[in-house]
Design a binder for these strands. Structure first.
Length: 247
DNA sequence: CGACAACCTTCTGA
DNA sequence: ATCAGAAGGTTGT
């Protein structure tokens, strides 16, 4: 029954030689099956944003939930439920640095709360829909466009062939998958086109393929991959420490 | 449909 | 030191 992770990477490697080298270094990579509400809120935070700030924002939301415990000096919290999230005002979120995403979160929480059978139940029920319907439902939420919807579908709704197309994936795609589109600007239509191309090439687990290609492209991973192939992993430079001001 | 500006904030590179 | 530009997009026109 279950498909083995190794088999999956091998399968991708057959249809794409580039995978062979990547899968060697990142063979343990996998796609999480996140809690849908947590995933939704997190990816609303991610839009037009950088990883560092996204992390701060997600930390803020997490700490609204119940404290679970501490591991190696790091505190952990239960992700807040819908009712808890509903108690946070747009202003509080803005003060916490959410910017215009504050009203997206507010709006989405409100829409979810208005769902007859319950917002979380509604979200979870999207697992039973086909990808297109799930995306359509998700994009009805404020702050959720095609990219964020695809992320939620892939990372929490069992839609393994959902392919989130953002600026990174677009660059990857125009380099390896659809070179004829290089130079063009990313429109919603081309978004779909790229996603389809991924599915055509990698099949029903296309989202997993996209994820591996994507993380291999992250600067942090690139440095690591580079050092691994050089055998200089121990020479990776530590992150730069902020200089103190003299006054 | 496609193009384009606006949107919060933080960080980076020239 | 300063400042445009980008950062895992979405929305409205």
């Amino acid at each position: 029954m279950g498909i083995c992770l190794g088999d999956l990477w091998d399968e991708f490697s057959v249809s794409d030689p580039r995978f062979a080298e990547l899968a060697g270094c990142l063979s343990g990579a996998r796609v999480l099956r996140q809690d849908p509400l947590e995933c939704l809120i997190q990816f609303i935070c991610s839009s037009n944003n950088n990883i560092k700030r996204i992390t701060q924002m997600v930390d803020f939301v997490s700490k609204l939930g119940n404290y679970v415990g501490e591991v190696e000096g790091v505190g952990f919290y239960q992700f807040p439920d819908l009712d808890r999230l509903a108690k946070v005002s747009e202003e509080e979120l803005r003060k916490a640095g959410f910017g215009y995403r504050a009203k997206y979160i507010r709006g989405t929480v409100e829409v979810l709360q208005s769902k007859p059978g319950g917002g979380v139940e509604w979200l979870t029920s999207l697992r039973k829909l086909d990808l297109e319907s799930a995306i359509e439902a998700l994009t009805s939420l404020p702050g959720v466009g095609p990219k964020v919807a695809a992320c939620i579908a892939l990372f929490s709704l069992d839609q393994h062939h959902a392919v989130p197309v953002d600026t990174h994936v677009w660059k990857i795609a125009t380099r390896y998958l659809v070179p004829e589109l290089a130079g063009k600007r990313l429109t919603p239509k081309l978004c779909t086109h790229v996603a389809d191309a991924f599915v055509q090439k990698y099949g029903k687990y296309a989202g997993w393929a996209q994820t591996l290609l994507f993380i291999a492209e992250l600067p942090s991973q690139k440095a690591l991959l580079q050092s691994l192939s050089n055998g200089t992993a121990k020479d990776v430079k530590p992150p730069k420490i902020k200089e103190e001001e003299e006054s």
